[in-house]
Design a protein around this nucleic acid. Sequence first.
DNA 1: TTGTTTTTGTATCGACTACTATAGAAACAA
DNA 2: TTGTTTCTATAGTAGTCGATACAAAAACAA
Lengths: 188, 188
Amino acid sequence: MAISTAKDLFHRRGYDGVGVAELSKTIGITAPSLYAAFGSKRELFKRVLQHYAQAGGGWLPCALATGDSLEAAISNLFARAAEIYTANPECPGCLILDGTRNCTDPQAQALTSAFRQTTRQLIRDQITTDVPDLTDPEVDSLADYALTILVGLSGSARDGMTAEALRTTAKIAAAGFAQRLQQYCDQA
Amino acid sequence: MAISTAKDLFHRRGYDGVGVAELSKTIGITAPSLYAAFGSKRELFKRVLQHYAQAGGGWLPCALATGDSLEAAISNLFARAAEIYTANPECPGCLILDGTRNCTDPQAQALTSAFRQTTRQLIRDQITTDVPDLTDPEVDSLADYALTILVGLSGSARDGMTAEALRTTAKIAAAGFAQRLQQYCDQA
DNA sequence: TTGTTTTTGTATCGACTACTATAGAAACAA
DNA sequence: TTGTTTCTATAGTAGTCGATACAAAAACAA
């Protein structure tokens, strides 16, 4: 599959790190065929992101929905992230969160930014449905925290942190979330 | 100052994102002069990192030493990071943590990796001196957690997260650290 | 088989990359 | 004023970037 092959390359070295020559060669087609099929490198990246969010990214709403409480859902989210971000050593971290870091193409950055906002919204929705009494700023704080934890897990995975270290980090972060959530609930 | 100017550029767009043409032009010298002065783009980057770690990075040991307890020191660390990573909107996040993300030059990556390990060691040393009773795996877990939080704060700052959101995230993360530290102390 | 359409490959476009050889200008000593 | 040295600027090295023009081959309809 061309999209899957391209996903691996983009995931490994980022949007700028992989050229169309390597893309087309690894996929097994020539450059003109690649442009005929996808239009541009950006469009191919867009397709890759959509495929990644749909196929591989389905774990996120799944992990959120699993728990019987918001604390459990977030704990599940962080734990799953720690596993997935280190599952394939060739492709550590998250393509959406780190695929366009230091990218020179603003439009490519905008693509990942949109998916990142979708991720944040998914977390936000889960928080509001599970604990409807929270105020908007409280929900925002918790969502920003969770997203920042995911960014940290992805970045550390890319820096070579072991799966075990990431797992423990995820647990500590989940406990921090639960603690703050309890604070919000107590004061209400 | 040439180093400072180069630091801004590298900080803004990463190692691969800025070329020697732009570097030399912004500094105000020609490309051959740049090579005569620094040897290569990598060497210039190395000098920039050293300057960044010494001048701007001094806040890290300072923040760690300030508190009267390890919890306070880490809380200080996260809070200061949230401030510094958003202090200059043109240069969000941390140059060491995010300067060579998706970088195609392994040697440049190795440079930031070394500084990142130094950062981790600083945190580790602070933990062991403040709470000597912890076991090595416990210290490692706490250090990995703290470093991952810094990575998350830097990445989220680069993604445009506001200073206010980062501040709150830092507080939640600090509480999580304190909670886990208490667990380790209680069980001992 | 012929005509038409689609796909493919070669070869290249201009712009950019890090880097440098060579020539010229400025600064200094005698 | 010379001679020497240091610095700098112009120009260009080979290579890669994303993206294509053009031609040859393959696939299909009549």
